[in-house]
Amino acid sequence: MTATDPFSIELLTNYLLVGAALFALGMLGFISRRNLIVMFLSAEMMLQGVALSLVAFGRFHGNWTGQVFTIVILTVAACEASIAMALVVVLFNRKSSLDVTLWQDVREAGVEATDLADEAAEAAPLGVSDGPETYPTLTPAGIEPAHPIQPWTERRR
């Protein structure tokens, strides 16, 4: 070692902390969200945290291995995204919903199912959704027409 590397261990710890926080946030999204697509986005976020840690370690040890491994992670992430999206399309065609709790019947034997879908069906709608479903308030005149299906009742099965 002829000269000291400016990338000190304090800098390495900074990058590792940010990578750990990204990993924990991705894990939180993967555990707690019910939309299949958001779950896969969270898994990609975990991969980002790991890639950041790998590149920082490679920079600290002064070799290219971290960056090479991150390129491999990029490849695997691209493959995973393509296959996952194909699976999501197939699953959506089966049940016309992206809810992951609808697929609890493929669980392991001995694990009890949670009926989150029934619980959620009792929930109140999330306010008034702005969009084509909202109507201007006019002076009522004539016979009231039949209202279309409300948006929060469309996908409730």
């Binding site: 969200r33 939309n35 879908a117 959620a120 479903e133 409300q150 948006p151 996908r155």
Partner: peptide, 12 residues
Amino acid sequence: MEGKAVYDRAAR
């Protein structure tokens, strides 16, 4: 779908 699905409004 249009509107907000119930599984997007509920967490596990």
